[in-house]
Amino acid sequence: MITVSIVEDDPDIRESLALLINGTPGYACIGAYPNCEKGIKGILKDPPDVVLMDIGLPGMSGIEGIKILKEKMPELDILVLTIQSDDRVVFQALCAGACGYLVKDTPPARLLEAIRESYDGGAPMSTRIARMVVESFRVTPETSLTQRETEVLTHLCKGQSYKTIADELFISEETVRRHIKNIYRKLEVHSKSEAVAKAFKEKLVSL
């Protein structure tokens, strides 16, 4: 059972998301909050597996909420679900600690799939967001990463889980984790989302 909490100020959208999640076998909505202030308090008290976070919220922004939650719960998976899709907001969210980024016209089936991908260690993005990211950055030849580390980072930026990366590269999950640990150290980051954001920002990968 994948547990989900929602932070969304629109009551109709919030209710629709909760109904979708609770109506799908294997998923359960354990919290639905209208703003970050209430969301943070509720999520810290009753942590879910995945948080669906809006960005444009009254009071504290979703990006600030992500930062606070990730500081207090580094392992928490936070999936952005918003109408905002400009590159500045996308990278602010990723740098804050979001594991993925979806726009609100995402079909219900894809949203549920993205929640599971987040739970499994992936970094799901809406097609238009992924395309925007790819088109905005080019690969740079200068990097301290080894060829294998760059390959692992590239797969990580595609939103793939550790298991999928291991299967794609014909290595063990433990080897993937070792490479990712080295990537974190070399890039001076502390999470998957920070590594992905830095990879795009510094043009370390070509998708």
Rank of each mutant, 00 (worst) to 15 (best):
E113S: 13
E113H: 14
E113R: 15
A114Q: 06
A114K: 09
A114D: 07
A114Y: 07
I115L: 12
I115M: 12
I115V: 15
I115R: 14
I115Q: 00
I115D: 06
I115T: 09
I115A: 08
R116W: 03
R116V: 07
R116Q: 13
E117R: 14
E117P: 03
S118H: 07
S118M: 13
S118Y: 09
Y119M: 12
D120K: 14
G121R: 12
G121Y: 09
G121N: 11
G121F: 02
G122C: 07
G122Y: 06
A123H: 13
A123N: 10
A123K: 08
P124F: 09
P124C: 07
P124R: 11
M125C: 15
M125S: 14
M125H: 13
M125K: 15
S126C: 12
R128E: 06
R128C: 07
R128M: 08
I129N: 06
A130R: 15
A130C: 08
A130Q: 14
A130S: 15
A130K: 15
R131S: 09
R131F: 08
M132H: 10
V133Q: 04
V133M: 14
V134K: 14
V134A: 11
V134F: 08
V134S: 10
E135S: 10
E135H: 08
S136H: 12
F137T: 04
F137H: 11
F137R: 01
R138M: 04
R138G: 05
V139D: 04
V139C: 05
T140L: 00
T140F: 00
T140Y: 00
T140E: 03
P141D: 05
P141V: 04
E142H: 00
T143D: 04
T143R: 00
T143S: 15
T143W: 02
T143E: 03
S144G: 08
S144K: 08
L145A: 08
T146K: 05
T146E: 00
Q147T: 01
Q147V: 01
R148I: 02
R148T: 05
R148S: 05
R148N: 02
